[in-house]
Computed example of a mutant assay.
Amino acid sequence: MQKKVMSTLLGLLLLMFVVWVGTTERTPVSKTQVTTVAYAPKVGYQMPPIALKELPNGSISMNDLKGKPVFINFWASWCTYCRLESPDIAQVYKKFGSKVIFLSINATSQDTLSNAKAFMKKYGMNWPVALDTTGAAARKYDIVALPASFFVDRNGVIVGKNLGPLSHKTLYSELERIAK
């Protein structure tokens, strides 16, 4: 009986170790490895390629952003946490906007264009805003809740990801890290 309990406990410990190893963050990718890194909305992977309509009359493609650090923020006008973090994003844009590409992606498939424009005006969003009218970008980036933010280095590799509202401290430190 005691041998059976010990075997079961050992098996559970081994299973917990395997799960723990599989869920830890990946180590940063070196510049020489970038060409072999797959696309995925995860830290250590290339940002998934998408092309979206940009307000007021343009378009934007993730492929055009490579070579520059990028901050991507998915949001919607009805999202309480999006409203809470937007003043901080507008504030740090003043400091980092010349060093980091800011790209806000409105979940237009779950929002209205008029509400999105009112939100942009209210929070002073003077940086590129793209419209995800079909939800395709949200699916490619595995967005299950808003807001969601990604910090991308100059090689197009996601080096930070935040689900839920960003604290001012996290936003500032992550932007500082990718701006270098």
Score class of each variant (00 low, 15 high):
V37K: 03
V5W: 07
T24H: 02
L10M: 14
K4N: 09
T35G: 14
L9V: 15
G44F: 12
P48L: 13
G44R: 10
K31A: 12
A38V: 06
G44I: 10
G44V: 15
K53G: 07
L10Q: 10
L52E: 01
R26E: 14
V29N: 03
G58T: 10
T24Q: 05
L10K: 09
K4S: 11
Y39G: 04
V43H: 02
A51L: 03
T24L: 04
Y39A: 12
G44E: 11
A40M: 03
E25Y: 04
V34W: 08
M47P: 00
P49E: 15
S30F: 06
N57P: 03
S7N: 04
Q33I: 03
T36L: 01
F17Q: 03
K4H: 04
V29T: 04
S7V: 05
P56L: 02
G11L: 06
F17G: 02
P48R: 13
P41F: 08
M6L: 12
T23D: 02
T32L: 04
T35N: 14
K31N: 05
N57Y: 07
P28T: 01
W20L: 12
P56V: 10
L52F: 06
P49T: 14
Y39S: 06
V29L: 01
V29Q: 03
P41I: 15
S7G: 11
Q2E: 12
I50D: 06
P41H: 09
M47L: 12
S7T: 08
V18D: 01
K31G: 06
K53F: 10
K3F: 04
I50W: 06
P49A: 14
K42Y: 04
R26S: 15
K4V: 12
T8A: 13
L15Y: 07
L14F: 13
L52Q: 02
L14C: 11
F17Y: 01
R26M: 12
M47I: 08
V5M: 07
M1E: 13
V37I: 11
